[in-house]
């Protein structure tokens, strides 16, 4: 059975290079797009931060924090419908790209990949969480997600008599490194400040500054450092199963060689060890497709959109990407040398 020519071309292609350019383009759109009158939407599943002056849209997390800063009563009115519409818009975007929003589009993700490139350029090694820490730290993103929903609700409502101070509005934005770092790309340093309005704001903004610093250091030593804690990633994962873009694994074809785990920026072990699950998109996954590129077994890992195969793992593609040339080219390049060598014997 011969593969279609176009399919073979795609399976042999270097998606990481394609991704590199898509990330650059997306970064420019989501940081400077506004200056070119680009408007996208305000409920995007990425850190398209409205604090950036040139931002063409908004991140859904800021939306949801504003929306939930309301009383229970008004949530049952038309406002509740608004909250649902806003979630719907988020899902409408999300459903197309699944977690590839993180791997291909999110400007904060891209920035971390660039920091990784800088580290590689300087020749420093990366670090990885060991198995225990990985499991322990994994839940942080869910805790952040729950908090960023509960805290705004707690401002207007009371939970067992406790009222959250107003200074805690949009709590996640206050600690989000995107708010502080992304505006710097438009020359805007105004987000580097500590708000001395009251104790709450002092604590929150200083925390934000600290996290931003941690972001820079962390992503220098660890690939996609922040994504591991990102509540957007947690929120996306809840809806990941309904997305049209899917990554599946055929466990029967897997030799568990671990190539996929080795190249995984976020260190997902299941990609190599799980031979039972079909849907292999895990909560930390960002669908960067590096694992599919590194898989040398035909059709073991597959990316599909609405059931249509887009990019499959293939032997031929693997060897082409990893050795930089086709077999025939290689043989041609070594054959003359070898013949001379053998003759001189």
């Amino acid at each position: 059975m011969r593969k279609l020519k176009i399919k073979r071309y795609i399976d042999n292609s270097n998606v990481s290079r394609f991704r590199f350019w898509i990330q650059i383009i997306s970064f420019f759109i989501f940081v400077y797009g506004g200056y070119f009158f680009i408007e996208i939407a305000s409920r995007l599943p990425i850190f398209s931060c409205p604090y950036v002056q040139g931002s063409p849209g908004g991140c859904y997390l800021i939306g949801v924090q504003h929306e939930l800063n309301t009383t229970w009563e008004s949530m049952l009115s038309f406002r509740g419908l608004g909250i649902l519409t806003s979630l719907g818009i988020f899902l409408l975007f999300f459903i197309f790209l699944n977690k590839a929003w993180c791997g291909f589009v999110c400007p904060l993700g891209t920035l971390q990949d660039w920091i990784t490139k800088l580290r590689k350029f300087l020749g420093f090694s990366f670090t990885r969480y060991d198995e225990m820490s990985f499991k322990r730290l994994k839940s942080i993103k869910y805790i952040l997600l729950v908090l960023l929903i509960l805290i705004p609700l707690g401002i207007r409502n009371s939970f067992f008599g406790i009222h959250v101070p107003h200074g805690m509005h949009t709590p996640f934005c206050q600690i989000c490194p995107a708010r502080i770092i992304l505006p710097l790309f438009t020359g805007d340093t105004s987000q580097i400040f500590i708000d001395f309005t009251d104790t709450t704001t002092i604590i929150m903004t200083s925390l934000g500054m600290m996290i931003a610093a941690l972001f820079l250091v962390g992503s220098f030593v660890k690939k996609r450092f922040f994504c591991f804690f990102c509540p957007m990633s947690a929120l996306q994962y809840i809806f990941s199963k309904i997305s049209l873009l899917r990554m599946t694994k055929d466990g029967d074809k897997c030799t568990r060689c671990g190539n996929c785990y080795r190249v995984c920026d976020v260190g997902i072990r299941e990609i190599a060890d799980d031979i039972i699950s079909k849907n292999i998109v895990k909560d930390d996954c960002m669908l960067c497709v590096k694992c599919v590129e590194a898989c040398p077994e035909d059709d073991c890992l597959k990316i599909s959109f609405a059931g249509m195969p887009i990019f499959n793992a293939s032997q031929e593609g693997f060897f082409k990407r990893y050795t930089g040339s086709s077999l025939t080219e290689y043989i041609k390049s070594i054959e003359p040398n070898k013949e001379n060598e053998n003759e001189s014997k």
């Binding site: 020749g123 090694s125 060689c257 996929c260 190249v263 590194a294 990893y322």
Partner: peptide, 11 residues
């Protein structure tokens, strides 16, 4: 079985 490398450094 093949070797896959993410960063082409000794580490």
């Amino acid at each position: 079985d093949t070797v896959a490398v993410d960063e082409w450094f000794l580490y």
